[in-house]
């Protein structure tokens, strides 16, 4: 990695940590430990299913909210506060700044996810008293959640490169919701005729397919995740993020910083 991108990424990570972004972990830990104790009390035989479902869904939602709310401010905050002026008056190219910011935020989310994953496994241990072989699939589900974060970060950056923070948050969250229903949208497109069908198909393939990246229910039931899906999802998330970041760079390269 270009060293300037690394410095910008590290600074972004440091900013997020010092802005107490990781404090959400406390809320997460409280939620999960409370849920684990409650589930331990009331569930019979399905403790594992409930804890995995609840834990991974919470990881996903907490992460997406953080990704959106930091992502939309990454560039606009630097323009508003004019911190960007002293960065771009150095030998830093605009694309390096955008990419560095992206890596900084994804780094923050990965660290965040690691802590939350630890919480999920501890809750699992509390209710099930031991780990089983099938628990390894929870790691795959967590990996897919991180891939979701990559795409959300990239989209938040893309929208914030030309829009206000509020509109960027709305657009990104809307895409996250639509993308989570992408499989349903594709199914709808297949059974719809004419222009409506074409339109639904176009939207279904244009929005990020978050539903393919969601295997929470599957792993909660202890089902295996095919290796091919891991490969496809990895390539898909990387390509989609790269496209969104490229779009952000293209817009930001031409932007006047007033």
């Amino acid at each position: 990695m270009n060293s300037r991108i690394g410095y910008i990424a590290f600074n972004t990570f440091r900013e997020a940590v010092r802005d107490r972004v990781l404090y959400n972990l406390i809320a997460f830990a409280l939620l999960l430990s409370g849920a684990a104790i409650l589930v331990g009390e009331i569930s019979i035989d399905i403790e594992r299913l409930v804890v995995v479902n609840l834990g991974l869904t919470a990881v996903s939602l907490f992460g997406v909210v953080i990704a959106i709310f930091i992502g939309i401010g990454l560039v606009s905050k630097e323009i508003d506060k004019r911190t960007l002026y002293t960065v771009l008056s150095r030998p830093v190219r605009r694309w390096e700044f955008v990419v560095g910011k992206f890596f900084g935020l994804t780094g923050t989310l990965v660290v965040n996810t690691l802590f939350m994953a630890l919480g999920v496994f501890l809750a699992l241990l509390y209710v099930a008293h031991r780990f089983e072989k099938i628990d390894a699939w929870v790691l795959v589900a967590l990996y897919f959640i991180v891939l979701q974060f990559l795409i959300v970060c990239a989209l938040a950056l893309f929208f914030s490169s030309f829009s206000t923070p509020l509109m960027s948050a709305v657009f990104t969250f809307a895409l996250f919701v639509i993308g989570s229903l992408a499989e349903d949208l594709r199914g709808f497109a297949r059974i719809t005729q004419g222009v409506g069908g074409w339109l639904a198909m176009a939207i279904a393939y244009l929005v990020p397919n978050f539903s393919a990246l969601n295997v929470i229910n599957q792993v909660a039931h202890g089902d295996a995740v095919p290796g091919r899906l891991i490969l496809y999802n990895s390539v898909y998330a990387l390509l989609y993020s790269a496209m969104a970041i490229s779009g952000a760079v293209l817009i930001f390269q031409r932007r006047n910083l007033k």
């Binding site: 060293s3 300037r4 410095y7 910008i8 600074n11 440091r14 900013e15 010092r18 802005d19 506060k81 004019r82 911190t83 002026y85 002293t86 960065v87 008056s89 150095r90 030998p91 830093v92």
Partner: peptide
């Protein structure tokens, strides 16, 4: 370059900020 009414990263100390800018430069 010194911009008008400069504003820097709040969370950094003066030493950390200069070190960061030194890296970028």
């Amino acid at each position: 370059f010194l911009p008008e009414q400069p504003y820097f990263y709040d969370h950094l100390s003066a030493r950390e900020l200069l070190n960061y800018y030194g890296q970028l430069s």
